[in-house]
Amino acid sequence: MSGTSDDRDRDPDRPPDDREGGTPHSDAADQRDREAGTDPSSRSEREPVREMPHKERPRNYTDPDSRLTDRLAVLISALVGLIVTGLAYWWAQSQAIFTEELYRVQPTVEERGIGADWVQGNTDPALDAMIAIIHAADALMGLGILVIVFLHWAAFRRLASQMRQPGETRRSDAVAADGGAEADGERGGDAG
């Protein structure tokens, strides 16, 4: 993002008059033409009309007293928007207290009473072990499956590199049907 803005607005501090003012201007014009679906041939007729109201100053400066170009202003605003959104997300994700947690009926008695069954069922060592084992199996199998996905991904890329690339000129005019052999293959010399 910053790279693009550096390239396009090389010197935002330069006074408006020093700028050629052509590029961003006509970019925007092109974009508008495309959006409007205007025929490019008709553009020459419209051009002088379009520039007339803003002849006094380049159009990439909304406010003549400001040093900000429109593009830079948009970038800064977008950045601020993203940062604030990120902070809001972080706060909502980790800092806020959820009402669900506040209103949950908590177990009130250690041995008997409300929630005793909840405590007993939640602390059964056999059930705990069962869940722990299946979690471990999930993690192990998951890692194994990921390894095998990457293995096949790499193998497929190698296989693809052995195939004729799309658009590669045919090595023979005779069309090799599926599984068929080519008449005079260069690479597959053993094929014929």
């Binding site: 004729r164 599984g179 597959g188 094929a191």
Partner: peptide
Amino acid sequence: HETTGIENLEL
């Protein structure tokens, strides 16, 4: 054949 013949297929 020395190869599977995959080189004859177009990607």
